[in-house]
């Protein structure tokens, strides 16, 4: 478990460093991206997805095993549901208003940006509201229905 924690921190540190270097943490940079005034972020994003998309398929084809789990590199995918559209639309509004998304918020905290504090508090509250909404139907389900449909409300393939 300790090795997993150390690896996770190191991967996150690399991620946070790169977000900072690319100035993702600057709301004006994100605003320029969303107003289609600066192609930088779009080019970066497309490159990252394309590189990972190709490499993951090569890893899978070569049956490479994960270093810490020993399992073959693999992933599950989900079909689109209503929550993916509704949730993403709500997220998109928050992203456009603040010009910051969750990764850069964490990197802003690391850089000591004071305005990240109220934003981070809101993110935590929003996650708590989402968790409570997920839990609510399970509590109000009739016993017979709950017995027929056990298990988590959200699919296990959540990538978050």
């Amino acid at each position: 478990m300790t090795r997993v924690r150390i690896a996770s921190v190191l991967l996150g540190a690399g991620f946070g460093f790169l977000l900072s270097w690319g100035q993702f943490i600057d709301p004006d940079r994100i605003r320029d991206m969303l107003l289609l005034r600066d192609p930088y972020m779009w080019e970066m994003f497309a490159t990252a997805v394309a590189v990972a998309f190709v490499a993951l398929r090569l890893l899978k084809r070569a049956r490479v095993r994960s270093l810490l789990t020993g399992e073959p590199v693999a992933w599950s995918t989900a079909q689109p549901e209503r929550r993916h559209v509704v949730g993403a639309a709500i997220f998109g509004v928050g992203w456009a208003v603040s010009d910051v998304c969750p990764g850069p918020v964490a990197a802003q905290v690391g850089q000591g940006i004071a305005w990240s504090v109220p934003l981070l508090a809101g993110v935590g509250l929003g996650i708590l509201l989402s968790l409570r909404r997920e839990e609510a139907p399970a509590k109000t389900q009739p016993a017979s229905r709950a017995a027929r449909a056990p298990g988590p409300v959200m699919p296990a393939s959540n990538p978050d």
Binding site: V85, L119, V123
Partner: peptide
């Protein structure tokens, strides 16, 4: 910023990811 943060946290958690989880990791798969 608090209100925007609530939208970010609630929306991303409901959608199963943010720009990292859905945008980078999810799209790459």
């Amino acid at each position: 910023l608090v209100v925007a943060g609530v939208a970010i946290g609630y929306g991303a958690k409901t959608a199963g990811g943010c720009t990292s989880g859905n945008g980078l990791g999810g799209c790459a798969t």
